[in-house]
Computed example of a mutant assay.
Amino acid sequence: MNKLLTISILILGLLPLELSAQQRPQYTQYATNQFLLNPAIAGSQNMDEIKIGGRVQWIGFEDAPQTVFATYHAPFKKMPFQNTMNQRGHHGFGAILIKDITGPISQTSAHLNYAYHHPFTSNLSASVGASLGILQHTIDMDQLSFQNSNDVIIDRILPNRFIPDGSIGIWVYSDKFYFGASITQMISNTTMFLPTGEREVEVFDLEAHYFANIGYKFDIGQENSDWFLVPSVLFKSVRPSSGHVDFNIRAQKADNFWFGGSFRQDDSFSGLVGFSAMQDFAFTYSYDFIISDIGPYSGGSHELTMTFKFKKKQRKVICPDSFWL
């Protein structure tokens, strides 16, 4: 049997996030960019927001995962909060572009997002959201080598495929806490085939990814201090994995400066730091120290995000707080 390079087989079977199962890119800074995981956040603020970021994973490994992303979301048809029985909400829309590359395999995704936000009180709101988009899975055949390039099984590989994709989510938020749940990659489909043995072909199916997270804001320091603490937990699951948990904690001074740490179950410890300039621009950097079996061979993972915000005075959106963004 003519085989692809062993590394190619491993990469396709272990598309990044968790080595055991997950097929979506991994993020350390999701606690400050929840929109990547949950479409219900679109338009939650009284401003337009653009985030541009990138991640380089497992430094020291050839063909290790690399990810770049850009997100945008904003409110529209804004309504001020009304303390009556006819409380009126607002809508949000957004878009997400992601490019994820692991050796000869790449995934490009583009999604449009919609959310509806409803205020229950001046300090409590909830939203539901959905996204639709397309995934492009590609194998760069020029990066692969074969013992016999004339093997007919090579023709069974799908080097390029476009697949529909969708997500849904809910988001409950106040000036003190948030809770969210979402399902991504909902549309089950087959990405590509890969030879695995004599006259055998492996089929890789996309699986739905489930996320649930919760966080709480604690004011710290003296009275009227701008400092607060945000511990949070993220649960994520995808078949056949039984699920993984991330624990996070972040200390922040108003919207000006923040630092914190994270623990990703069976994978890594992470540290992050960020700052904001004039509330219009923010920069966040994080580093992952790998504790899994590949830790001794990896230089860790780096991730950075730049945020641009554009506030428009005529907009009136009830957002009790935005410490999760």
Rank of each mutant, 00 (worst) to 15 (best):
residue 183 I to N: 03
residue 183 I to Y: 04
residue 159 P to A: 09
residue 255 D to I: 00
residue 42 A to T: 03
residue 75 P to T: 01
residue 276 S to K: 05
residue 213 N to S: 13
residue 29 Q to V: 00
residue 304 L to A: 15
residue 276 S to V: 02
residue 138 T to Y: 07
residue 293 D to Y: 01
residue 3 K to W: 06
residue 132 L to K: 06
residue 240 P to T: 06
residue 175 D to P: 00
residue 158 L to G: 07
residue 99 K to Q: 09
residue 38 N to L: 02
residue 248 N to S: 05
residue 300 G to R: 13
residue 301 S to I: 06
residue 304 L to F: 15
residue 273 V to E: 07
residue 257 F to K: 09
residue 102 T to N: 05
residue 234 L to D: 06
residue 297 Y to M: 10
residue 320 P to Y: 03
residue 98 I to F: 00
residue 297 Y to W: 11
residue 241 S to W: 07
residue 214 I to N: 05
residue 296 P to F: 08
residue 137 H to V: 03
residue 154 I to W: 11
residue 276 S to M: 02
residue 240 P to N: 14
residue 200 E to V: 06
residue 30 Y to D: 07
residue 170 I to R: 11
residue 54 G to F: 02
residue 11 I to L: 12
residue 243 G to T: 10
residue 128 V to R: 11
residue 287 Y to H: 14
residue 131 S to I: 03
residue 199 R to D: 15
residue 37 L to Q: 13
residue 220 I to M: 11
residue 311 K to C: 00
residue 222 Q to E: 12
residue 239 R to T: 08
residue 303 E to I: 05
residue 64 A to I: 07
residue 144 L to R: 05
residue 41 I to A: 03
residue 202 E to A: 15
residue 49 E to G: 02
residue 261 G to T: 13
residue 68 V to Y: 09
residue 97 L to G: 08
residue 177 F to M: 12
residue 157 I to R: 11
residue 254 A to F: 00
residue 40 A to Q: 10
residue 31 A to I: 12
residue 208 A to E: 06
residue 315 R to S: 04
residue 105 I to A: 15
residue 249 I to Y: 04
residue 239 R to Q: 12
residue 6 T to Q: 14
residue 235 F to L: 12
residue 149 S to I: 08
residue 225 S to C: 06
residue 207 E to W: 02
residue 184 T to P: 00
residue 197 G to P: 08
residue 280 D to P: 00
residue 271 G to V: 13
residue 182 S to K: 02
residue 101 I to F: 01
residue 218 F to M: 11
residue 29 Q to N: 15
residue 32 T to F: 02
residue 280 D to F: 05
residue 276 S to F: 01
residue 110 A to L: 11
residue 251 A to H: 05
residue 290 I to D: 13
residue 57 Q to V: 03
residue 218 F to A: 11
residue 80 P to Q: 07
residue 126 A to W: 09
residue 155 D to V: 04
residue 148 N to D: 15
residue 290 I to Y: 04
residue 77 K to N: 10
residue 240 P to A: 10
residue 61 F to G: 10
residue 165 D to Y: 09
residue 62 E to R: 13
residue 256 N to T: 08
residue 277 A to T: 08
residue 178 Y to H: 07
residue 77 K to T: 01
residue 295 G to S: 09
residue 109 S to D: 09
residue 250 R to Y: 01
residue 191 T to N: 13
residue 93 F to P: 01
residue 213 N to E: 12
residue 94 G to F: 01
residue 61 F to V: 06
residue 142 D to E: 14
residue 175 D to M: 10
residue 31 A to L: 11
residue 198 E to I: 11
residue 109 S to L: 07
residue 9 I to E: 15
residue 294 I to G: 02
residue 231 P to Y: 06
residue 245 V to S: 04
residue 106 S to R: 14
residue 178 Y to L: 02
residue 319 C to K: 01
residue 214 I to W: 09
residue 164 P to A: 07
residue 276 S to N: 11
residue 267 D to Y: 05
residue 280 D to K: 12
residue 275 F to Q: 08
residue 219 D to I: 02
residue 278 M to P: 00
residue 286 S to T: 10
residue 15 L to S: 14
residue 207 E to D: 10
residue 271 G to T: 13
residue 230 V to I: 11
residue 188 S to Y: 04
residue 325 L to W: 08
residue 16 P to F: 01
residue 208 A to N: 09
residue 299 G to W: 08
residue 155 D to E: 15
residue 255 D to F: 00
residue 61 F to E: 05
residue 290 I to W: 06
residue 87 Q to Y: 03
residue 122 S to N: 14
residue 88 R to Q: 13
residue 223 E to D: 12
residue 45 Q to W: 02
